[in-house]
Nucleic acid binder design. Structure first.
Lengths: 198, 198
DNA sequence: TGGATAACAGATATTGAAATCTGTCATCCA
DNA sequence: TGGATGACAGATTTCAATATCTGTTATCCA
């Protein structure tokens, strides 16, 4: 049988994540990754053109893991307002859980994200698309009154920055966090709402 | 005549700001400040118990200069929605102008604010109070329908974080900034609005 | 012949000794 | 006697030599 373990980009990314977890972003080197894979560092450069591109790929993996469960909610069915609320709560709670469970790794990913701004931008576009999907449903259902779905989707994502953007992670320990988030959510949903028929 | 120049806290703060401008936050020392004042650094410690407290006082001065013109708007008269819009635009444009005019000094103040989180918290409370003042007027005028003025005020401040919080300064160069801010503002104002009488 | 390697040059990081800084205090002086 | 001073100890920063890392390439091998 003697399985020959081949060096794939996927395997490199896994090990890189592990190395980042153990050493932190500042200290982790390509040589460390190669050592953990038991290959020369030149071999890593065969699969990724630079250290920056390797890091970018790790960032992308992480962000994809964030957006996947949200996509499920966005593409679900049922009343749009409830769905939007669930989507927004899921996004913010996921981020807040991450920082709470493993603050060091979160800090690592934050720094990584700052470098890989192209990847982050694409991620934000995807999130805005998901909100837009829900808003579009809401307009069809007559629950929302929105003139520009795309602009509103971005406005909502912007509005909750404080509760999902890693730069604000330091403010997530406040006792009144949930209360304030609820107030913001209520304000946004009221802003989207179509006037009641009577 | 021979005016004796006395060493006042105010004069120390002025010179400290100047030293910060010239050397940057990381390099500026209490000794530098004392040198610029032509006194021993021990004299500075007679007026401020520590370097941290000196920096805090500088941060406070800066934040007070931000909130003063906003207080004028908040305490003005006229229709609350227009006043709120003006207040929010003034806050965000002031911050964005600062970062555009003197990015280095802005970075210095950002780092300073991160240290002096107590002072920053008080500043945010003051801003929320100002918004609450406008909201209260709006409710009285029948323009806004808000159950908890204080909570709504904080929700609004939170919602525009992306456009006034220095942590997002990197995103203020985007071409669609004004457009996106307008969309968010419209959404928030719609959320505050009392249903039209008919 | 695709994929791994070791050797290499230039860039970056580490390290430890020396310099500087922070905060205190006994002393001075107007 | 309130306010300034300079000397001081311990903490922090700087700087330059040394080590390590990044990215390339000629070479190897299965």
């Amino acid at each position: 049988m003697n399985e020959v373990v081949v060096l794939t980009p996927e395997r490199i990314l896994e090990v890189t994540e592990d190395v980042l977890r153990r050493f932190g972003l500042a200290k982790a080197t390509v040589v460390d990754v190669a050592r953990a894979l038991d290959v020369s560092h030149g071999s890593v450069y065969r699969h990724f053109p630079s250290k920056a591109s390797l890091r970018e790929a790790v960032a992308k993996r992480w962000l994809d893991r964030v957006s996947a469960p949200l996509a499920k909610i966005a593409e679900g069915s049922g009343p749009a307002p409830a769905r939007l609320e669930r989507w927004l709560r899921t996004l913010c709670l996921a981020k807040q859980k991450k920082v709470c469970d493993d603050p060091e790794m979160f800090a690592t990913y934050l720094a990584l994200a700052r470098e890989a701004c192209v990847v982050v931008k694409a991620h934000k576009e995807r999130l805005a698309d998901q909100i837009a999907t829900i808003l579009y449903d809401g307009v069809k259902q007559g629950a929302f009154q929105v003139t520009d779905v795309r602009a509103s989707a971005r406005a909502i994502l912007d509005a909750i920055s404080r509760y999902h953007h890693p730069a604000h992670a330091g403010e997530w320990k406040d006792a009144d966090l949930a209360e304030r988030f609820d107030a913001l959510l209520a304000l946004l949903l009221k802003g989207l709402e179509a006037p009641r028929k009577r």
